[in-house]
Design a protein around this nucleic acid. Sequence first.
DNA 1: CAATATTGATCAGTATACTGACTATCAGTA
DNA 2: TACTGATAGTCAGTATACTGATCAATATTG
Lengths: 156, 156
Amino acid sequence: MKDNNDMPGHLARRFQQIAVAVFLAEVGEAGFDLTPVQYAALATIKANPELDQVTLAGLIAYDRTTITGVVDRLVQKGLVERRASPRDRRARALEITDEGRRTLRKITPAVESAQAIMLRGLSAREGEELMRLLRKAIAAGNELSRAPLREVDLKA
Amino acid sequence: MKDNNDMPGHLARRFQQIAVAVFLAEVGEAGFDLTPVQYAALATIKANPELDQVTLAGLIAYDRTTITGVVDRLVQKGLVERRASPRDRRARALEITDEGRRTLRKITPAVESAQAIMLRGLSAREGEELMRLLRKAIAAGNELSRAPLREVDLKA
DNA sequence: CAATATTGATCAGTATACTGACTATCAGTA
DNA sequence: TACTGATAGTCAGTATACTGATCAATATTG
């Protein structure tokens, strides 16, 4: 009988579980209250002014129904503003606030330390190899989830 | 600036997301309605008669507050029975039903095909290496999540 | 340009995960 | 045995994820 430890699905779940716990612990110790998902969204909003929610979802591979709540919480924390888009009255244009920028800047060391802790059982070479293999498997499976990654031409 | 693709946390989330989608698609096509989490719980209950919920949680690294709902749903589907433990009046003794056994047997091909699809971008060697590195990283981080894996002496 | 299709956002409902609290019970010890 | 501490299970509350539906607005096309 196949052991759990031979199931990539089980290993995926477990690694993710640890990754989230480590992220929350590091960020929490640094005095911030931000989830991994909120962090990625905030960083992406900062990098792409006037981003709408669907495009944001595509850039970080979130489901469009999930992004609504994530942005809600970022807005509630005062890190992001949700305005009406000037080009499309259906869309919201997201903008990072000054406090969002400040938070992002101050939180970075904790985020990077979290990434290191997740890989602490591996040598640097192994860590690189793990990331390479994950990237490759993810690229091949991108279209299999409801929320695939979408690279977008943003200068439009 | 660090790209998402250099963040093990982001890759972990993404790989897990694809793994769950693939599992649900394969199992659904085979005519079953079972999540990855429910499947692992069911298989573990089958392998360990009279298992209590905390031990079950430890064997598959679920949070004890999560296991309640998972077992609820297995019971509701008629795949598991939740009895009073003969030894400890606090505990529940979980038993797989005949239908649970049948389901587990018939669902196995779909589960294995799902595991293969998750790795379809990788060669066999790369797939093995990915699992090895995940196992190693997970072992090092086991205690960092609220729901660590607990290997238990079950013949007690 | 009118009918149709598509798209951005949200909502209701379900299923993990986790935090923190609580009850009932058990185990160890003074 | 009475006290203390630990343990099994559950619950309320919050945050991802996803399914499927809906509404409003935009695009497409006959």
